[in-house]
Design a protein around this nucleic acid. Structure first.
Length: 274
DNA sequence: TAAAATGTTGGGTA
DNA sequence: ATACCCAACATTTT
């Protein structure tokens, strides 16, 4: 479940606990690797050695990355398409897709479940090794509509793929990008440097409102991956092809842009003046 | 059955 | 250097 609100929801659960202990304050005894290619940095053997006996100081998020601060170094995890993290007691039966398991001192485990195996795990001294290339955090106070307009006008790209580019803005994925563009009334093929100030303001607000709504609903739970999130019931365009636009009633359409399915309302997001 | 799925990355073209 | 396309990664679902 990989976009900003889902990652934020998972990070919060790890940080404060849910119906069980939190990860914060726990010590990692060892790691069990059933799909060693999960480990991206450093080498698998070095990773095994360096993760032992590390104490978890805090858990946070940057873009779509989970950031686990240790007493020495940083454990950083990207869930990609199908990853999920949970804390489970040792005696809770494992799922066949629990590929990377961290054993904790309190007889619990941090389990990285990942059906499609696209996820990645990093252990680095300086988190900027991983976060350094990321664009701004959309919910941070330093992300303003003026800064967004400045960045948009530096480029000449179609707005949808640009918003998906994590070096441009960190955290948006396919669902929240489509939802944000609909809220802003902007066609996904519009050129970034063609957006007028009032459109940029609407986009800025659309992005932030969509993400905040996603977070307050604990993210979206779709397909076979379920986490208790509810945002899938609030989609206005995503996977609603042929259904009525919540604003004007027109049928939602789908097209492929930059190899990603893209959903929008042709009336509320007019193609005119692309 | 072929297509598509919440993501990224590397390679190639213009 | 910028913009864009395609394939790849691995698995499941429609």
């Amino acid at each position: 479940m990989p976009e900003l609100p889902e990652v934020e929801t998972i990070a919060r659960i790890l940080r404060v606990g849910d119906h069980g202990p939190s990860l914060k304050g726990q010590r990692i005894q060892r790691v069990s690797l059933h799909w060693p290619r999960h480990i991206h940095t450093p080498s698998v053997s070095t990773f095994r050695r360096r993760i032992r006996n590390r104490l978890v100081r805090d858990v946070g998020r940057r873009g779509k990355f989970i950031h686990i601060q240790l007493d020495r170094g940083n454990l950083i995890i990207h869930l990609r398409m199908s990853g999920d993290l949970s804390i489970a007691a040792n005696d809770t039966p494992q799922d066949p897709h629990d590929h990377t398991i961290f054993f904790l001192e309190n007889n619990y485990q941090l389990r990285f479940n990942d059906v499609r195996k696209f996820g990645r795990v990093y252990l680095v001294d300086d988190e900027e090794q991983i976060f350094g290339e990321l664009g701004p955090e959309p919910l941070s106070p330093s992300f303003t509509w003026e800064s967004l307009m400045e960045d948009l006008h530096k480029r000449k790209r179609r707005i949808k793929p640009l918003l998906l580019d994590q070096t441009f803005l960190a955290g948006l994925g396919n669902i929240y990008t489509d939802e944000a563009l609909h809220r802003a009334g902007i066609h996904p093929l519009r050129r970034s440097d063609s957006l007028e100030p009032d459109e940029v303001q609407a986009l800025w607000k659309g992005i932030r409102d969509t993400l905040k709504s996603g977070i307050s609903n604990n993210g979206a739970s779709i397909d076979w991956v379920y986490r208790g999130g509810d945002f899938q019931n609030h989609f206005r365009v995503y996977q609603r092809v042929g259904e009525a636009c919540t604003t004007c009633g027109s049928p939602i359409v789908r097209m492929v842009i930059g190899q990603r399915g893209t959903h929008f309302c042709p009336k509320c997001q007019p193609e005119a003046s692309i």
